[in-house]
């Protein structure tokens, strides 16, 4: 029962009240860059879920069992970025070889994920928050889900916005940013949510 409560509360925190895009403001570049079409948004979102989850778990394991015992915490940034970069490379090779269908769908987004600060940000967050292993797994998974949700919502709005008649200086990015701002307001309204507190 305890674990169920933990999963649900982690889900609500990671997806809604502390959404990676609207609360932490991580991963803004892909959020603005690939949210013009729903299809690309979903592809990018799914790739990010995959990479965030695996890289956070790996970072957590390396941090807890290698860096802490040897007092090498200052290598955190260097090691985490190396983990993410090599993981992305490995996944590319692996997917190309064994799941070509998946590679066709998500492959083009993979290289972009390395410099997505959401991935490194989550890896940093799970070690600073002092999570246990199970929490890390679910937290990073749900953070990815939150990112996917934000991307899908945003792409839906932007597809409509393209047809809207707006002042010329607001066309494109400024308008998208305002839409994002209003969505962030809505998400911050959920921050009082606490089911199990």
């Amino acid at each position: 029962m305890d674990i169920l409560v933990m999963i649900v509360s982690t889900f609500i925190t990671a997806v809604f009240t502390e959404n990676i895009v609207f609360y932490y403001t991580y991963g803004i570049c892909p959020f603005l860059g690939v949210s013009q079409k729903s299809k690309t948004a979903i592809g990018m979102g799914l790739t990010v879920i995959l990479v965030i989850t695996i890289s956070s778990i790996l970072s957590y394991i390396i941090y807890t069992y290698l860096l802490i015992p040897f007092e090498l915490e200052y290598l955190q940034i260097l090691l985490f970025i190396l983990i993410i970069a090599s993981l992305v490379q490995l996944m590319e090779v692996f997917m190309k070889r064994f799941v070509p269908a998946l590679y066709k769908g998500l492959g083009i987004y993979l290289p972009l994920v390395t410099t997505n600060c959401a991935v490194l940000g989550t890896a940093n967050a799970v070690v600073t928050k002092g999570f246990i292993f199970v929490e890390t797994v679910f937290y990073s998974l749900f953070i990815g889900v939150g990112f996917l949700l934000a991307l899908i919502l945003m792409s839906g709005i932007r597809e409509r916005l393209e047809k809207a008649d707006v002042p010329k200086s607001f066309k494109g990015l400024p308008l998208a940013l305002i839409a994002a701002g209003i969505m962030a307001m809505a998400f911050s309204g959920l921050s009082g949510l606490n089911f199990f507190g």
């Binding site: 609360y23 403001t25 990015l173 305002i178 962030a184 307001m185």
Partner: peptide, 9 residues
């Protein structure tokens, strides 16, 4: 952050 998005826009 909501205000940041709007201000930047």
């Amino acid at each position: 952050p909501a205000g940041a998005f709007i201000m930047l826009a």
